[in-house]
């Protein structure tokens, strides 16, 4: 695409415009390909000129992502993408900044930065590729690997209790929290669009298959023949129903969710209704704790609420200070306080 077109008021872009000239070096059939493809589909629909996008990543297979998108990009260092993106966004709130990260990058070495980025609610979009393994370093367990998993660094099985990225995000006051699966193309596209349009930090976990070191870790949630019984699609204002014949639902028993069969005296009105806009994150947290095989794992938007946006507030304080005190005058500054003359 030429610079002239990018300069025009309403650029009409396609996925092709967002493809870079770099050869993609993920393993064949890696889940990352699908996520990249859906992203390239979503970006042209946002009405944002290509030069206004910045992709920031850390280290890991997923973090190669910026090289494959023809926007501004910063492939940085392990775990620091949220902090680097914060610098970009605070400096330039006019840019749309995406953070691409993985389970090791975001939750292990970069856990601290992730928490603070989320609680500040910068206007950033974060995609966490969760494959429950360290792929780039060739197969060590990650903070999302289940207990008992045998990997190169856990030959007798992992004894390390994993965490859920979404529980962490909700606990860190994230204003937008969602989940999808790499191969669920339509749903992933929908979730990415919703994330792109959210005002504030949008946090999306994508179950992503590492077909080399942790193949089929999410088979229960991705295989079309079985997934209907293992996942539940969240829809705002709708009851939680799932299953092959949509005969199952999730009901609240006190503070605890339970799976029930519809019919036999249980109607949809008895089920848990999803409310992504709930001010308190309790429901979203409860949903984020539902795990296979005891529960269907929720897919979709867990939480989407509005809150003050950090980068806007920083800019606003600068504006307010200038309005109140007048634009800084250097000679006034230098001559402030006690001064004296030497003749």
């Amino acid at each position: 695409m030429s610079a002239e077109i990018a300069n025009s008021a309403l650029p009409v872009l396609t996925a092709k415009d967002f493809a870079s000239d770099q050869e993609i070096r993920w393993c064949p059939r890696c889940g990352d390909y699908s996520i990249l493809a859906q992203m390239k589909k979503v970006l042209p629909t946002l009405g944002i000129p290509r030069e206004k996008f910045v992709f920031v990543s850390g280290i890991g297979c997923s973090s190669r992502f910026p090289y494959y998108v023809n926007t501004y990009g910063f492939h940085s260092i392990h775990g620091r993408a949220p902090a680097i993106a914060t610098g970009v966004k605070v400096a330039r709130p006019d840019l749309q900044v995406w953070v691409i990260t993985g389970d090791g990058d975001a939750l292990s070495i970069g856990g601290n930065h992730l928490m603070h980025m989320l609680r500040r609610n910068l206007d950033l979009k974060v995609i966490l590729f969760n494959n429950r393994i360290y792929g780039l370093t060739k197969g060590q367990y990650s903070p999302t690997s289940p207990v008992g998993q045998k990997t190169k660094s856990t030959p007798m099985g992992s004894v390390d209790n994993p965490l859920s990225p979404l529980c962490y995000a909700i606990g860190s006051e994230a204003t937008f929290v969602a989940r999808s699966v790499d191969v669920d193309i339509k749903h992933l596209t929908y979730v990415l669009e919703r994330a792109a349009h959210h005002k504030g930090t949008a946090f999306v976990e994508v179950y992503q298959d590492c077909n080399i070191f942790n193949h089929d870790a999410f088979l229960y949630a991705s295989d079309k023949s079985i997934k209907a019984d293992h996942i539940v699609y969240l829809e705002h204002g709708k009851p939680l129903v799932f299953g092959k014949d949509v005969k199952k639902g999730v009901r609240l028993n006190g503070m605890h969710p339970e799976v029930v069969e519809l019919g036999k005296g249980v109607g949809e009105d008895d089920l848990l209704f999803h409310d992504e806009k709930a001010t308190e994150p309790s429901l979203a947290f409860l949903l984020s704790r539902m795990k296979y095989p005891d529960f269907p794992e929720p897919m979709g938007i867990f939480r989407a609420v509005e809150a003050p946006i950090y980068d806007e507030q920083v800019a606003l304080q600068v504006e307010t200070a200038i309005k109140k005190q007048g634009a800084g005058n250097f000679d006034e500054l230098f001559n402030s306080g006690d001064t004296w003359n030497v003749d």
Partner: peptide, 17 residues
């Protein structure tokens, strides 16, 4: 920033910007 690492990292981001 939340720590020294984030302080330096955000500086890299702002410099890029």
């Amino acid at each position: 920033a939340e720590d020294e690492i984030a302080a330096m990292s955000s500086v890299c981001g702002a410099a890029f910007a």
